Simulated scan of single mutants.
Amino acid sequence: MPDKPRTKGRNMRIWKWNALGVAAQKRGTNRTEIVNRLIDWWLATPGATLPDQLTPEEVEWLKSLAVKEDLANSGD
């Protein structure tokens, strides 16, 4: 088991979830880390920083994968 969650799991819809996971893994991180950093930044947590965006090359690489349907999805 990777790590033991310290908070209660919650259900939520996140568009492009699969693409986020693939890109995060390529960057050596995970979706949880990225989402938590975005939340900290949005809540103006002292010292919070945004994760770096993908480079244009990484975006093209991601589009070439099977997750392209996920990238095109804009929600329900």
Rank of each mutant, 00 (worst) to 15 (best):
M1F: 04
M1G: 13
M1A: 11
M1V: 10
P2N: 10
D3V: 14
K4L: 13
P5Y: 11
P5F: 03
R6I: 10
K8D: 02
K8G: 02
G9H: 03
R10I: 01
R10V: 02
R10Y: 03
N11G: 08
N11M: 07
N11H: 10
R13V: 11
I14E: 01
I14V: 14
I14C: 08
W15C: 11
W15Q: 06
K16D: 03
K16H: 09
W17T: 05
W17P: 04
N18Y: 07
L20T: 05
L20V: 13
G21D: 06
G21Y: 02
G21P: 06
G21M: 10
V22Y: 04
V22K: 08
A23C: 08
A23F: 01
A23H: 05
A24S: 15
A24H: 04
Q25A: 07
Q25W: 04
Q25F: 08
K26T: 04
K26E: 08
K26H: 12
R27C: 09
R27Q: 15
R27S: 08
R27A: 15
G28A: 14
G28L: 13
T29F: 00
N30C: 12
R31K: 15
R31W: 12
R31L: 06
R31T: 14
R31F: 00
T32G: 09
T32R: 14
E33T: 15
E33W: 08
I34L: 14
I34D: 02
V35M: 10
V35R: 12
V35I: 15
N36V: 13
N36G: 03
R37Q: 15
R37M: 15
L38A: 13
L38M: 15
I39C: 11
I39A: 11
D40E: 14
W41C: 04
W41G: 01
W42R: 14
W42K: 13
L43K: 12
A44W: 04
T45M: 13
T45I: 13
P46F: 00
P46W: 00
G47C: 10
G47Q: 07
G47P: 06
G47L: 06
A48I: 08
A48Y: 01
A48D: 03
T49E: 12
T49I: 13
L50S: 08
P51H: 09
P51E: 06
P51M: 09
D52I: 00
D52S: 09
Q53E: 10
Q53M: 03
T55L: 01
T55R: 04
T55E: 11
E57S: 01
E57Y: 00
E57Q: 11
E58S: 06
E58R: 14
E58P: 05
V59R: 11
V59S: 03
V59K: 10
E60V: 06
E60R: 11
W61T: 00
W61F: 09
L62T: 03
K63S: 00
K63T: 04
S64W: 00
S64M: 00
L65N: 07
L65I: 04
L65E: 04
A66G: 05
A66N: 10
A66I: 09
A66K: 14
A66R: 13
V67S: 12
V67N: 05
E69L: 00
E69Y: 06
E69I: 07
L71G: 02
L71R: 02
L71W: 02
A72P: 00
A72M: 08
A72C: 07
A72F: 08
N73L: 06
S74W: 07
S74M: 08
S74T: 10
G75R: 00
G75Y: 05
D76F: 09
